[in-house]
């Protein structure tokens, strides 16, 4: 069953682009990554799913129900963690969490305690006095305390230290094993690679690709930078399949390679090199790749 389904979902802010004809689906029980650079439309898509904003055209369903028509019903089973957490000041953490729990018709006291212990969150502090990271923890507990079937996370890790990030991921994996579906939006590829089964890549308001993480990894993008001793002909690498964004500046050659790494190494072995860098490309560079292929 598909937990989330988007059909040509479009949102325009006046004439400015929000997202254009976004379609993808998230299956029950999977951790679905949603990646793209800042301003690509990740948050817009999520806000549409939560009916914080309403679509210009197209539609979306969660649990098979239309997100606009059945919003309150759907939200009973959704836990949401925004990228920036702001809560009513002047409240203690526990009061805020109790207020949050009061919207769901179940007893969440035990879960609150459990989550707070796991995230090392002091429930008696005032929210005003909390650091960014601690506020984020409040957000995490707040989003999970009603044991939602669908967890929506919008760049959730900012502000958390590496240890807490680790805990948080374990927590998510736990919830996932218990049956929760997770939509995880991020611009950090490594997080997504670690957690997700499939990803949708969004750029400038459009879905560029929906792929299994396994495929992405098999694709094995590498960023090469080679400094040669003497100038080599440009064609040496440009003819090779899998080479993208080739740049030659004097004796420095750089490109992104996707494919069997042995082929490229054999080629490099054939020339005399002064220096060699092989790096994981960052997300932006992979995007550039997708982008160019689209064009």
């Amino acid at each position: 069953m598909n937990v989330i389904e988007l059909n040509n979902l479009t949102k325009m802010y006046g004439k400015a682009r929000g997202i254009t004809e976004v379609s993808f689906h998230v299956e029950e029980g999977e951790i679905f990554g949603f990646i793209g650079p800042n301003g690509a439309g990740k948050s817009t898509t999520i806000r549409l799913l939560l009916s914080l904003i309403y679509p210009t055209s197209g539609s979306a369903t969660i649990f098979g129900k239309d997100v606009v028509k059945h919003a309150p019903e759907i939200k009973k089973e959704i836990g949401y963690l925004p990228s920036e957490v702001f809560y009513y000041d002047n409240m203690k953490v526990i009061d805020l969490l109790k207020y949050s729990a009061s919207f769901y018709k179940k007893d969440c006291a035990k879960k609150i305690k459990e989550l707070a212990e796991m995230m090392e969150l002091d429930l008696t502090r005032k929210i005003d006095d909390l650091s960014l990271g601690n506020k984020k923890k409040v957000g995490i507990v707040q989003g999970l305390l009603h044991e939602p079937k669908l967890i929506i996370l919008d760049e959730p890790t900012s502000g958390l230290d590496p240890l807490m990030q680790q805990r948080f991921f374990e927590l998510l994996e736990n919830e996932n094993q218990k049956g929760a579906t997770i939509l995880f939006s991020s611009h950090i590829l490594s997080e997504v690679q670690r957690l997700c089964d499939r990803v949708a890549i969004i750029k400038e308001g459009k879905i560029v690709q929906v792929e299994k993480i396994r495929t992405l990894k098999e694709n094995n993008y590498k960023k090469f930078k080679i400094e040669t001793v003497s100038k080599v002909p440009d064609e040496l690498f440009s003819r090779l399949p899998g080479v993208n964004q080739l740049e030659v500046k004097g004796k420095t050659i750089s490109f992104i390679f996707r494919g069997n790494i042995n082929h490229i190494m054999q080629k490099i072995a054939g020339i005399e090199i002064a220096n060699l860098w092989v790096e994981e490309p960052d997300l932006e560079e992979i995007f550039m790749h997708f982008y160019q292929r689209e064009a």
């Binding site: 939560l50 009916s51 914080l52 019903e73 759907i74 939200k75 809560y87 949050s100 919207f103």
Partner: peptide, 8 residues
Amino acid sequence: EFLFTKPV
């Protein structure tokens, strides 16, 4: 985002 993502 807190209030309007609640089931109300």
